[in-house]
Simulated scan of single mutants.
Amino acid sequence: MKITFLGTGTSQGVPVIACDCEVCTSPDPHDKRLRSSIMIEEEGKVIVIDSGPDFRYQMLRAKVKHLDAIVFTHEHKDHIAGMDDIRAFNYRQEAAIDVYATERVQEALKREFAYIFAEFKYPGIPEINLHTITLKPFLVSGIKFIPIEVMHYKLPVLGFRIGDFTYITDAKTISEVEKQKIKGTKILVINALQIEKHISHFTFVEAIAFAKEIGAEKTYFTHISHRLGRHATILGLLPKNITLAYDGLVLEVN
């Protein structure tokens, strides 16, 4: 299974324009982070987790020519705003795209993209097959996903375990019951927003503590704001089995 990090950043704490901080002005490509998303490729199937505002550019940058499904973690705009751009894959593949989301997230999609769900559809709008997911394991193109419920302040958000790979964004707290689904994973991806305290995201220190608790062979931090600091600087502060993910990073997972 091939995992590509399409984006490792976040809208949280990121100025839109005219920021002259050391991260925003860094020449290091590792510091250029689009909104968080990953792509999973297995036996010709292509699945994306979350389609944020940068989705179109992420697909172009990664030269993605086929898409089977999108799986959503939650309904915040930095995770769903790009769904309209699946229309290019509809056109190329002459087929609807499978979309997996909880009932709550589906309601948000119907509000944000009402034209997709209208009775009378405008020609050329995105075409999707909507699938409801819960906390029960489910299959996407034959690949087993185990949902992991984490709390994003007071909002339940889903992470996913796929074999020995676990992907979680937007976590602040995780129950002991849900942690049991994660333990034993070989590769863990977890959010690490910034150094300072935050109400709804793991901080740098909290993410390190969580990684040590889970004890994966390798942990990658994602959903990183510019407030965390430059990639090269932060690497020097991390234990050897924990590192920062970056846009374009590719992992081969058994």
Rank of each mutant, 00 (worst) to 15 (best):
E112M: 11
I195L: 14
K121E: 14
I125A: 08
S225D: 02
T173C: 09
I174Q: 01
D54W: 07
T203K: 10
K154F: 14
P126S: 05
Q180F: 00
E127W: 05
T169R: 10
L60F: 12
K183M: 13
Y100L: 01
Y167N: 00
T169G: 12
E22G: 01
G184V: 07
I116Y: 11
E206R: 10
G215R: 14
K144G: 00
G124S: 09
I162V: 14
P53R: 08
V140A: 06
D247N: 14
T222N: 11
F138H: 05
L130D: 08
I38Y: 09
I234Q: 08
R56Y: 14
G163M: 06
A118G: 06
I47N: 05
H152C: 06
I168V: 12
H131W: 03
K186Q: 11
G229H: 03
S175L: 00
S51F: 06
R161C: 05
E41G: 02
I224A: 09
G52L: 09
K121N: 07
K218C: 07
E94R: 13
I80Y: 05
D28W: 11
R61S: 13
V157S: 13
T102M: 02
V23S: 02
K63Q: 13
A118H: 12
C21G: 13
R87H: 12
K63W: 01
R104H: 13
Q93H: 11
S37M: 13
I116T: 11
C24W: 09
E213K: 13
D85I: 07
M151T: 00
G248R: 10
R104M: 13
E41K: 11
L188N: 02
P126G: 04
Q106M: 12
V205N: 12
P53C: 05
M39N: 02
A108T: 15
R56C: 04
K197W: 14
G248S: 06
M151F: 10
I242C: 08
C24A: 05
S225E: 02
I199V: 12
I86A: 07
S36M: 03
